[in-house]
């Protein structure tokens, strides 16, 4: 019942694959460097919520670990966990530990 960083990245990539067809005219890359939210980012708040919830559920299905990626704590971090795929994977592995 734990989550490796690798598993977190896989869960995010799967969510990206699922979300891409619904994005208007853009497509997120399967890369840790992909910017998700914030300046120069591809996603609006609604799609960020969609992505985050898909990632939470993918992690749950794959590893049985329940992680909460959207919380007051996450929102108030200096370095946003939603900035990039890398940041989100780091955050997921951190809160699941």
């Amino acid at each position: 019942m734990s989550l490796s960083r690798e598993q977190a990245v896989t869960a995010i990539y799967e969510a990206i694959d699922e979300l891409n067809p619904q994005l208007d005219g853009i497509s997120l890359e399967r890369s840790e460097d992909t910017i998700l939210f914030g300046e120069g980012a591809a996603l609006d708040s609604l799609n960020l919520v969609n992505l985050v919830m898909m990632v939470e559920q993918n992690i749950m299905m794959e590893t049985g670990t329940e992680v909460l990626l959207a919380s007051e704590a996450a929102m108030s971090r200096k370095r946003s966990p939603y900035r990039s795929v890398k940041a989100l994977a780091d955050y997921a592995a951190e809160v699941a530990a």
Binding site: S45, L46, L48, V49, V52, M53, A70, S71, A74, M75
Partner: peptide, 8 residues
């Protein structure tokens, strides 16, 4: 309740 949009 959802931290990003108030509610999901």
């Amino acid at each position: 309740p959802h931290a990003i949009l108030g509610a999901a």
